[in-house]
Design a protein around this nucleic acid. Structure first.
Length: 254
DNA sequence: GCATTAACCACAG
DNA sequence: CTGTGGTTAATGC
């Protein structure tokens, strides 16, 4: 929007309204990825023609909080692009207990791991907020990867960063105790997801526990300790980081 | 031994 | 769904 910096207010308003109109039109007609304002970093390097093709291979849906994008154990024929909203990635373990593996932000792909390997989803993804998602057929998605090196490069970039952060999570899960893992997770929400000191806790205690790898009781107690020592503030579902330095120390030392 | 950590259970808002 | 209290098993000093 740099070129609007010196434009008169009318033009700015007009532009915003027009953009929104185009956007709404796109929602009704077939998905037009070319004009999508929420394009992924990878899709940004596609040509007009390729974007057209992507649009043809893609269906946009909006879902409510709690709805599943796809479920573990069911066949996967799509890659899901999370256009708006937040999602949780979770997987059932041997004891049939659901573990949250990570929170996915808007602008990321869900389920790219299954495009080359298994045709059955190895994990589930569901919406944490109201969300908009594009379901892209795997066949076309793969074709784009084969055809456009820049696109493939962006995706690999993304996958690598993800894997590194998984490594980090894994190690801290092994080496830190509950308090440290919880501190880390609360910080993760503040820094990575919401980029704010205050944010709504979208997970139930049960879910939060399944994310840090503990029981809801232990998480409850630890949260209470944080509040009592003034590290965080909590009213209802709102979390506020009061002492960032202290909680970072806890998160790092475990 | 004793302290700490965290799971499990039960019960009540 | 959440918080609390009691109990218990494992681990560390």
């Amino acid at each position: 929007m740099v070129f609007f910096r010196y434009a008169p207010l009318e033009i700015i308003c007009w532009s915003i309204i027009t953009c929104r109109k185009i956007y709404l039109m796109d929602l009704r007609s077939e998905s037009s990825c070319a004009r999508c304002p929420f394009k992924s970093k990878a899709a940004a390097v596609l040509s007009e023609e390729e974007l057209y093709m992507l649009g043809k291979a893609c269906v946009e849906v909006s879902v409510n909080r709690g709805d599943a994008f796809f479920r573990q154990g069911t066949p996967s024929g799509h890659v899901v692009y999370l256009k708006e909203g937040l999602a949780r990635i979770h997987k059932k373990g041997p004891r049939n207990r659901d573990q949250i593996l990570k929170i996915a932000c808007s602008g990321t792909y869900l389920g790219i791991q299954t495009i080359l390997g298994d045709v059955v989803n190895q994990y589930s993804a569901s919406a944490l907020t109201r969300a908009v998602a594009c379901y892209i057929r795997v066949r076309e998605f793969r074709w784009l990867i084969q055809k456009n090196g820049d696109f493939a490069n962006e995706l690999i970039d993304y996958i690598c960063r993800e894997e590194l952060s998984h490594f980090n999570r894994l190690v801290s899960h092994w080496q830190k105790q509950l308090t440290g893992r919880l501190a880390e997770t609360l910080l993760y929400f503040a820094e990575e997801i919401f980029r704010a000191r205050e944010y709504p806790m979208l997970l139930t205690r049960q879910e939060l526990a399944s994310m840090v790898g503990g029981t809801r009781e232990s998480v409850s107690r630890a949260m209470k300790e944080f509040v009592d020592s003034g590290i965080i503030g909590m009213n209802k579902k709102e979390i506020r980081i009061l002492k960032p330095e202290l909680i970072k120390k806890l998160a790092n030392s475990g």
